[in-house]
Design a protein around this nucleic acid. Sequence first.
DNA 1: AGACAATTATACCAATCGGTATAATCCTGT
DNA 2: ACAGGATTATACCGATTGGTATAATTGTCT
Lengths: 190, 190
Amino acid sequence: MDSDNRAKILSHALRLFAARGYDAVGVQEIVEAAGVTKPTLYHYFGSKRRLLDALLEEHFMALYAVVEPAACYRGDLSRNLNEITAAYFRFAKSQPPFYRLLLSMYVAPPDGESFHAAYGLYRRQYELIETLFKQAAEHHGNMKGRHRRYAATFLGMINTYITLALNEAAALDDELLYKAVHQFMHGIYS
Amino acid sequence: MDSDNRAKILSHALRLFAARGYDAVGVQEIVEAAGVTKPTLYHYFGSKRRLLDALLEEHFMALYAVVEPAACYRGDLSRNLNEITAAYFRFAKSQPPFYRLLLSMYVAPPDGESFHAAYGLYRRQYELIETLFKQAAEHHGNMKGRHRRYAATFLGMINTYITLALNEAAALDDELLYKAVHQFMHGIYS
DNA sequence: AGACAATTATACCAATCGGTATAATCCTGT
DNA sequence: ACAGGATTATACCGATTGGTATAATTGTCT
């Protein structure tokens, strides 16, 4: 019963931001959807921007928590890539509005409020993946010096498929997962 | 001398939209940057939304014009992929603000004004690439039925690299171009 | 019961939002 | 020189923006 209103504000703000964007949604609209008034929102979050930060923080930790173990190298890169992709697919399916918001913020205009809030989150994922490729390169000599490119394109591929799924042009099932990782590893001719 | 103001409005609107987003930029700010007044803007474009449409239309045609010939299949898929990537890289380098705006709109929230304006533009590119893979599949039997996935991931890869370049984390030079296309075709182990 | 802090409501703020009515100006063709 | 359409400026519209001052309410602990 404690912070019931706080949670309601968060969930409605997420839904609205994901549907129409941070700038296009007014504070008034959020509090009306949540069934509270403005001072309640400003009591919990202080500003619209900090409401967004709180939103990102709470949901992102859940994503990071499942990706981090999946990116821990244990001698089998292809297994890592499958587990990471599975983790992302599962998370995107469980929190579509949040992942939509996250995606839109990664490529948001750089001077906007939403970009800087999200850039750090992207970096943390990227570094996780880059470290994995760096470690794997020690076992696959011909991968040396490519970890940056591989990390970026691997994350890019995952986000490409999730974008398709969010627009209902793909289903994030096990078959797609296998084909996606296979294509990433072996190219399009195999 | 004719529509000098019209062009000024377009160019400043593009710069501002790309920097901070469609919703975060007010009409007032655009006209001030362009050195005109609001009725001038509304005389030429009628509404803020139609200003955005005009912006997209004019610049997108230039992109489409260079990608279309590059996507025309002539029996050598790898040559097409190189030419298409080169066309995108060149365009992104020549119009960074516009490509930034385009990218941000592809993954923008689906109920926002900017999304529907851009979705059609993405589809047109996608269909160009998909047709190419469909034609190439007739010569490479083992690619059959994969043209959708290949078109999506190929475009996704290009946009991943361009995003990196826009954030100054990569240079869209010939070396990157070659490596990108090679990786797409043959995977990460070769 | 009474005190105290956390929480919520009423009512308001200046500033900005997208858009427009009216009229003045400018340029072009005759 | 003059007409007429294209273009631009002044001044304004109601609605909404993010944010807040004040006060009433609530739950908790002593």
